[in-house]
Amino acid sequence: MNRPLFVSLDGPKGAGKTTLLEAITKVLRADKQKVIRLCEKKSDPFRAETMALVNTLARNPGRDLEWQVCQRLADSRAWISRHVLTKQPADSIILIDRWYPSDAAFRRIVPFAEIVQLNLDRNVRVPDLHVGVVTAPEISWARAAARSRGLGSTVLHDLEEHVACTLGFEQGVADHGWVLCRNEGTLEEATMQVVSEIYRGFPCLLMN
């Protein structure tokens, strides 16, 4: 491989995505793979300004303002694509916590497909493997609500919106042929599903 393998994990609040990402990292590193863990929001130098706009949107929802948020986030991902992803070792596996599928599923007005296309038009790097991590909405909602920081969302405010977000992820995965990981069983089962998908899609990794 002449560039890092790029894998994104996206999912609704409380789907266990970050815990799963940590478990995948552990397994891959045990296999002697070089794994780089990234988080979109922590890699975005413009996040504070964008979140100020998101907070405004939460108080005054509307398509024009939501589209501005989507544009800003796509521009940030284009920046990350150029200035962060390209700096990683060519023989590494990049696992990123959220990418544009999350943005597409969380928005209430701008359609999923338009947000995906916006990111492509901005030359945001397309992951080599998209993984959508979901559970039944009632399960992930209860998990998120039970966390010490609570739901922690400026976008979702009730179960109905969370259900719509979950359905958005599932439909996006189906429409684009991404990998769907239902994280309702054991952590080991979900972990090995994603690790198997990585090795199945990129058997050259097994030769390292």
Rank of each mutant, 00 (worst) to 15 (best):
V163C: 11
R147D: 10
V173D: 05
T135K: 10
A136D: 14
S153I: 02
T154P: 01
Q171P: 01
V133K: 04
G168Q: 02
G168Y: 00
E160S: 14
S148Y: 01
T166R: 07
V133H: 05
D158I: 00
H157C: 06
A145W: 00
P137Q: 00
V133I: 15
R147C: 05
V163N: 09
T166I: 04
E161R: 07
Q171S: 13
S153F: 03
A136R: 14
P137C: 02
V155K: 09
L156S: 10
C165F: 09
G132S: 12
A146F: 04
H157G: 08
L156F: 07
A174E: 13
C165S: 11
V173N: 02
D158R: 01
L151H: 07
A144C: 09
T135I: 07
S140T: 04
L167C: 07
S140I: 03
A144L: 09
A144I: 06
A145P: 00
E160L: 08
W141H: 03
S153N: 04
E170P: 01
D175P: 00
L129D: 02
G152W: 03
V173F: 10
A142Y: 01
H157N: 12
S148R: 14
L159Q: 10
V173I: 15
H157R: 14
V133E: 06
A145L: 15
E160T: 14
S153W: 05
G150H: 07
W141A: 00
R147K: 11
V131Y: 02
R143G: 01
D158M: 01
D175N: 07
E161G: 14
Q171R: 15
H157D: 07
L151Y: 09
H162Q: 11
E170A: 12
V163P: 06
E170I: 12
T166C: 14
L151R: 11
D175K: 01
H162G: 05
A145R: 14
A142W: 02
L156G: 02
Q171V: 08
A144W: 06
G132D: 02
V133Q: 04
P137W: 02
I139V: 15
D175R: 04
E161P: 07
A174T: 11
D158Q: 03
L156P: 00
T154G: 08
W141C: 00
H162C: 04
H130L: 08
E170D: 10
V173K: 00
L156H: 12
A136K: 13
D175Q: 10
V134C: 11
G132E: 09
G168I: 01
L151I: 15
V133T: 05
T135L: 12
G152I: 03
W141E: 03
T166F: 02
L156I: 15
L129E: 06
T166G: 05
R143W: 08
W141T: 01
T154F: 10
G150N: 08
L156R: 10
V131L: 06
F169R: 03
A145C: 12
A164C: 09
T135H: 01
H162Y: 06
L159D: 09
A142R: 13
H176T: 05
A136L: 11
V134N: 06
R143V: 09
V173C: 11
V163F: 06
I139G: 02
R147S: 11
L167A: 13
S148P: 11
D175L: 03
V163W: 10
A164W: 05
R143F: 08
G132M: 12
H157I: 06
S153G: 03
V133R: 04
L159V: 08
A142S: 13
L167I: 05
G150Y: 09
A136Y: 05
R143A: 07
G152H: 04
